[in-house]
Design a protein around this nucleic acid. Structure first.
Lengths: 229, 229
DNA sequence: GCAAAAGTGTTAGTCATACACCCATGT
DNA sequence: ACATGGGTGTATGACTAACACTTTTGC
C-alpha cells in the first residue's frame, strides 16, 4: 500500500520533565547525554517509543529506567512537532511531567545517561532540541494543575510540615504567601491528617507533621468536588 | 543506521474537534468517511501528517481543507498513542480543537469527506478509532479554557446579545446561570463594546448587540491579567 | 392585549486579605 | 539568653448568590 511507504517513515519519542522538591526549592532531573546527537550536554530524559509500546507506558519506562520508581504521578504536557526539531529524521516528541518524592529516589539506574542530576528550576542550562521550550510548558502546566488539584503533595515525603507545603507552593507559583492565610485555607480543605508527631532535633520550636488524606481526597473527587489552591 | 530501520516505521495524524455554536447549542463538525478504514461512519476530521509539515500546520490544513477557514482559534488537546488504535499500523494522533463562528463557515470544500455535518454535542454517534474518547477530552479542555479565558467569543458572530453569550456558557458548562449575576460579571470585565445597534424583527423586545473588545483584551493579557468566567 | 424575551438592584452571606506577637526548642 | 522558625485571631473589604418585576417589540 502506497500510504505505508509515504507516511510510515517517522518516529516519536517521549520526553520527561521530572519534578522534585528539595531544600525548599523546585528541581528538575536532567541527564548528561552519553550518546549522539547532542552528546555531552544536559538534557531532559527521553527515548524513542517502541512500535509495540503504548505512549504512556513508554513515558513510565523512561522514568523507571532512570529512577527505579513506579507508581509516580505523571501527566502529559504537550506534543512538539516542528519538522526540523530532531537531526536524525522526522521525530515528534510527546512531553510528560512527573512528580517524585526526592526522598524515595534512590539510584541512577540508567544505561543511556552518563550522569543524572537535580537542577534547581532557577538555574537550568541551555538544553538541546526544543527542551527549554518543553520545560517552560511543563512549568506552566504544573502551575495550572497545582492551582486546581492538591497534587503538590506528590512532591513531599509522607510526613511534612505546613511550612514545607507553603514553600512548595511558593516555588511553584513563584510568589510569596501569607503564613496565616495559607494555613487557614489548607486546613479548611480537610485533607490533612495530624500525624501526632513533630520534628525533632531542630534548632527551634519543632513543627507538627501532617499526612495527606489520599482516601478522603479520592472520595471527594468521586463526588465531583473541585479544589482551588 | 540501525535506529532508522527500527523506529522510523510509524506515522502520526492530527484529529480536529471543531466546535461551533448555533441555535443555542454547542456543535461539533463531523465528516462521513468516504474511504477505508471505517468507510461509511461519522468521524472526527483528521489526516496523516506529512513528513515535511509542522504538526500545527497540519492541523490548520485539515481545518482549512474542510471549511475554507483560516485564522481560527485552535489549541492542542492531547496525544493518543495506544498501540492498536489504528488498523493500518502504528499511528499516534495529536488531537486539536478549534472554535469557529458557524456564520463564517461556508463550504464543504473537502476531497476526502463524503459529507460534513454539525452534530449537536448532546447527540454524538459512536465514532471510529478512539474518537469518542478524544471528544470527551476536548469538551473538558474547552471547559477549562473557557473558565479562565474569554475565548467563548470565538464561537459567536461579531455582534451578539448578552443572552447569546449566556446560552453559550450554559452549553459549554452544562449548567444554568442567573441572568442578572451573569450580566454583571460579564460587563464588569470591561471587554464588551455596545455596538449601538439592536436586534430587529424579533417577536419581543429587541436585545442590544455587543462586540468583544479584542484589542483591550490583548493589552490586558500582555500586562499579565487573568480572567475567571 | 397577549406572548416572549430584555433589562435592571438590593441584600445577606461567604471568602480573601492584611497584619503582629508569643512559643518551643537547640546552642 | 539568644536565635530560629512555629503557631495563632481579628477586622475590613470584595465577591458571590439569591431573588421578581417592568419594558419593548411582533402578532
Amino acid at each position: 500500500m502506497n500510504v505505508i511507504k509515504q507516511f510510515f517513515r517517522s518516529a516519536f519519542s517521549v520526553d520527561s520533565v521530572i519534578f522534585g522538591f528539595d531544600e525548599g526549592d523546585l528541581k528538575v532531573l536532567l541527564i548528561y547525554r552519553g550518546a549522539d546527537p547532542y552528546k555531552g550536554t544536559w538534557a531532559l530524559p527521553g527515548d524513542l517509543v517502541r512500535l509495540d509500546e503504548d505512549l504512556d507506558d513508554s513515558a513510565r519506562r523512561v522514568l523507571n529506567e532512570l529512577t527505579g520508581l513506579t507508581n509516580v504521578y505523571m501527566d502529559q504536557i504537550h506534543t512538539f512537532g516542528k519538522v526540523e526539531r530532531h537531526p536524525l529524521g522526522r521525530v515528534i516528541t510527546v512531553a510528560y511531567y512527573s512528580l517524585v518524592k526526592v526522598s524515595d529516589y534512590k539510584v541512577n539506574a540508567s544505561s543511556w545517561a552518563k550522569d543524572v542530576k537535580w537542577h534547581s528550576i532557577s538555574s537550568i542550562p541551555k538544553l538541546p532540541f526544543d527542551h527549554n521550550e518543553i520545560l517552560e510548558y511543563a512549568k506552566n502546566k504544573l502551575k495550572d494543575k497545582v492551582r486546581h488539584q492538591p497534587i503538590g503533595f506528590e512532591l513531599l515525603p509522607k510526613e511534612f510540615t505546613l511550612t514545607d507545603i507553603q514553600h512548595l507552593y511558593e516555588s511553584v507559583f513563584e510568589i510569596e504567601l501569607d503564613k496565616r492565610n495559607f494555613r487557614k485555607k489548607l486546613l479548611a480543605m480537610g485533607l490533612l491528617i495530624d500525624s501526632g508527631f513533630s520534628q525533632n532535633a531542630v534548632a527551634h520550636r519543632p513543627a507538627r507533621l501532617y499526612r495527606f488524606d489520599k482516601k478522603k481526597y479520592q472520595s471527594l473527587i468521586q463526588k465531583g468536588f473541585s479544589f482551588e489552591l
